[in-house]
Design a protein around this nucleic acid. Structure first.
Lengths: 254, 254
DNA sequence: AAGTGGTCTAGACCACGTA
DNA sequence: ACGTGGTCTAGACCACTTG
């Protein structure tokens, strides 16, 4: 019977300290350490946390402040709360919502990958179709880039980008620092993107580029990236070797 | 110049009324009408809303209550707020986060689709591998179901499910009401799922089932569905005709 | 009955963007 | 200087779950 009262059911003594002199908001001083402990594995799924009243007293902050911190963590999928029950760390699969897919990684953090070749870099004028897709005017200057991404010594993906010329890095910047970093240096920061994933079989050209047989399966991704003010700053059409690349994400009911 | 002060920049006179007698929380009585107006197109992207102080006065509720309502809508991606600026309806592409993908639809609302054939329905005992994947014990009873989903008179997907026997609908229920409804009738409600999407080419059997040529591209989805308490209640392995099915979703930075 | 989270109030002060 | 949202407080009452 000594195992019946599992340590999971004992409120975890959260090692959180509040510094009222630091500029950071109190609710963040509460939520961030907890978030780190969960993501770092120090706080395991199912672990019960202190109730909000007790924690507020202990930290000498108001209850709404602790509530705000806990609620943010619930919205991030790290905690789950039930009235009359308490607050617990959610089950691990939910956490992946944070980590997201590797497709998401390459939205913001490329240039880190070991090798990305630039296959072509063209400056053109937008025709009617491109203008429509990019939400720009006809004959606006655009840049079309084709790249080949490598991983573990093998080609992993072909990536084709179409973007307004004023957002695009120069060819030199592109090869040296990556696409999104080059855009950031122009003050262009994608804040959201809508993405469609599908499948096709490799054409002869695609197979050549990716070192595959013609007819091999490819995972396709079409992504439209937006800045905060709604401007379209990148149209990406990518093709991945399906044998080596998949997309994982979490779905929540409701 | 008369167009410079666009109607978007005039605070929208929100038609919200508060009923303190109704049991529904005040913050919902504020946020839900706004949500409906945005999703319904009545409130267009870019529209400025009343500031929270004014709205709180007008509705005779406290400022934190209005804040709570607005913050929920920000978390849903419907509003965006900037200090010193105000609160505006976000740009339309963000709203799709709500609608999610059609893969998500068939997580919870199948049985609505025009036709789903049951190809096989087997009761087995879990071997070591299945037990591992399902998080159950070896030799627990499990049910393995194969189905074929149709759309517009053509087969769209093969769907294979493995689930604990006590979660599974009977064959009769399955054919009459659909899988997830049958599970719901057993009190089994999937609350979240983790899903991996990839691509492959059709084998001879898959091609036959889907009325395709061998070697046609297929979009694959493997989904593990969980109840709120973390129990695994469905392992799905699905294959879609890539020519007719894609997955769309939204990515947000940070 | 006791303990939990859920809701709500009426203030206060601050940081930021604009004019 | 002004108006906006961001943060914080110290209470209060309610609804749900468990012993």
């Amino acid at each position: 019977m000594s195992q019946d009262t599992s340590s999971l059911d004992q409120p975890f003594p959260l090692a959180v300290t509040i510094d009222r002199a630091s500029g950071t908001p109190l609710h963040l001083q509460v939520s961030e350490p907890i978030s780190r402990m969960i993501l770092g594995g120090e706080l395991v799924p199912g672990q019960l946390l202190e109730d909000e009243v007790t924690l507020a007293e202990r930290l000498q902050v108001s209850r709404p402040t602790v509530r705000r911190a806990f609620q943010d963590l619930v919205n991030d999928g790290l905690l789950s709360r039930r009235r009359g029950i308490g607050t617990r760390v959610t089950l691990p699969h939910i956490h992946r919502k944070i980590a997201l897919s590797s497709l998401y990684d390459d939205l913001l953090s490329d240039g880190i990958t070991p090798r990305t070749d630039v296959l072509s870099y063209e400056v053109r004028l937008a025709d009617a179709d491109i203008a429509e897709e990019l939400g720009c005017a006809r004959n606006d200057e655009i840049v079309v880039i084709e790249r080949l991404r490598w991983s573990d010594g093998h080609p992993l993906a072909t990536m084709k980008h179409t973007l307004p010329a004023d957002c695009a890095p120069t060819l030199t910047e592109l090869t040296q620092t990556g696409l999104y970093r080059g855009m950031a240096e122009r003050g262009v920061k994608p804040m959201s993107a809508i993405q469609t994933v599908g499948a096709k079989v490799a054409s002869e050209r695609e197979a050549d580029l990716l070192h595959l047989e013609t007819g091999s399966p490819l995972l396709t991704a079409e992504r439209t990236a937006f800045t905060e003010d709604g401007r379209i700053v990148d149209l990406g059409k990518h093709m991945y070797d399906a044998a080596r690349y998949q997309v994982t994400f979490t779905l929540l009911a409701e």
